[in-house]
Design a protein around this nucleic acid. Sequence first.
DNA 1: GTGAAAGCGCTAACAG
DNA 2: CTGTTAGCGCTTTCAC
Lengths: 339, 339
Amino acid sequence: MRAGEHASSTQETTIYSLAEELSLSPSTVSRAFSRPDLVRASVRERILALAEKKGYAPSRVARSLATGRHGLIGLLVGDITNPFFPPLVRAVEHAVNVIGSGVLLLDARSGGRPEHELIRQVIGSVDGMIMASPWAPTPQLLGAIGTTPTVLINRAVRGLPSVTCHAVEAHLEAADHLVSLGHRKILLDRGPAESWVAQRRIAALRTWAEARRGDRVELIEGRRRQASHTRGRNQAAEMVADGVSAIISIDDYTAAGIIEGLAGMGLDVPGDISVVGCDDVLLGQVMTPQLTTISVPGPELGGIAVDMLNRRMAGEKVPSISLDGQFLPRGTTGPVRAR
Amino acid sequence: MRAGEHASSTQETTIYSLAEELSLSPSTVSRAFSRPDLVRASVRERILALAEKKGYAPSRVARSLATGRHGLIGLLVGDITNPFFPPLVRAVEHAVNVIGSGVLLLDARSGGRPEHELIRQVIGSVDGMIMASPWAPTPQLLGAIGTTPTVLINRAVRGLPSVTCHAVEAHLEAADHLVSLGHRKILLDRGPAESWVAQRRIAALRTWAEARRGDRVELIEGRRRQASHTRGRNQAAEMVADGVSAIISIDDYTAAGIIEGLAGMGLDVPGDISVVGCDDVLLGQVMTPQLTTISVPGPELGGIAVDMLNRRMAGEKVPSISLDGQFLPRGTTGPVRAR
DNA sequence: GTGAAAGCGCTAACAG
DNA sequence: CTGTTAGCGCTTTCAC
């Protein structure tokens, strides 16, 4: 078999077969699809009609090979099962659809393979990449994306545009809120070491704690760990072992797990322990009591990322953007219990 | 500019440039990547070394064009923000990664465009398709997928293999459970008219209600509507207007909204109204009280779908599979309130 | 084992 | 507006 005869049996229709049948040149047929305005209306009609009848659609790969464009944007998320991501994915899909492209979604936690390998595997078939995952070390990341236009979400890397929301202000507000409720010994769940936003928040809270030392405020830093419901549940016990009365969690997803773990130990939230989450996902809103949290505008981050990516792909130089989060005091924080 | 000179400035490295530099033929370089076993080890080493140095990787589009394979599986989900889907997506990604392919994710609700258009847009760049979305009418669906191997999740279409979990047994169990708690007037939230599983369940429950008519059981059928938290919340009032004492919701996502809507009306669950969900997602597990529901094994559906798709792509004829769900009585169902 | 050459299906100068 | 022609970068016979 000669190269490419994979479809020989089914006689795929191509611009050539159409051209032949209509006694036109292949280029005219091609133009009828790619530059309809360049083809006389009557001719175009005939072409489109026959194409319709034969169920023909231009081959995307052939087109890609010829043009160098793919009509696909890669979106890498840190963990699709974390409820923070689906609304962001939705926003990205939406924005990308508007410009007539599709989304190639990669979940960093699905493969058991390092993130940069995932990227390498698809980088050749996308026009641009949006990275909402913290795991790849910067050099590997840079190596994997090569010259493909890329926008980062919640991560900063020199030379790449990013949209972030570390919500430092809101975190300090949350911390102050805890202190005003009488909490003095607070556990800070640090999340994954690779997470840029997590590091920003930790640094800010650390500074805050320093400043508050006069008030006998103590900030205990937990081990660095991945964000997930299961992890929160399993490590709740360890988190409160130090006698803390409040926990600031890396995100709502983990916070929900922590609360579940606490409940398993017979500890009430906020009666015994106060918990603050982050992201403001639906999961936290349906809990009773509702989760006190800090909002992070996921869909907005996604939409802006697409916008920035478009401009980058158009050759523009785009500046990074930082969005604000908001502290949302709700039901899982309360006055420290009298001993 | 001649066709394809889009990368002329950056002098992309190709099998030709490598071959030239190593005084080999392009075919040999090509083989070093696609059929390494056909190239003498020493030669292969030299090729791979230079490629590494130049950061070269074979062009996926060129390869696709030549081979007709794409290394990509399309996955269409009904609504990525419905918590039922992310774990399924994760499972599909995982299974697909194992066979060295990637996942092209489409969200039927992101585009504002009809489902079959979404499919058409990508069908040419995937090796197979997994459809976990109910919206496209069968003829359109069939037209859009053409001859691309396809597996359906939670939907049955003549001629296409599918994995489903309509959990009819479990639904009847749930209904019996409600009756045993004293409920006689039950609202059945019908979900989207397009949903095959929804129709199956409705039919089963309708039959069940007929049989139970002697016990004065009454099944009210709600309007057909999309599944979502927002929708549940907004239409809770309408659902209980008929004086029903229990609701069987199309899924947990919607059920959570219904309960929120009910709470907004001052109605307690299960004190005033009992609610049964479906899917058994985390969202329902973190609620207080926990949502009574029927489990649907999303990840398993996804994994099996990939498996079936593989076999279909290998030319096998694969039979459809139906999985079981399980009734999980929890906290949102209780005895009917004494009037 | 390796090389030469054709072909995958399309696009985009260029010339009319 | 339309046709001719030369690629895009790879795979795969076939011959050596």
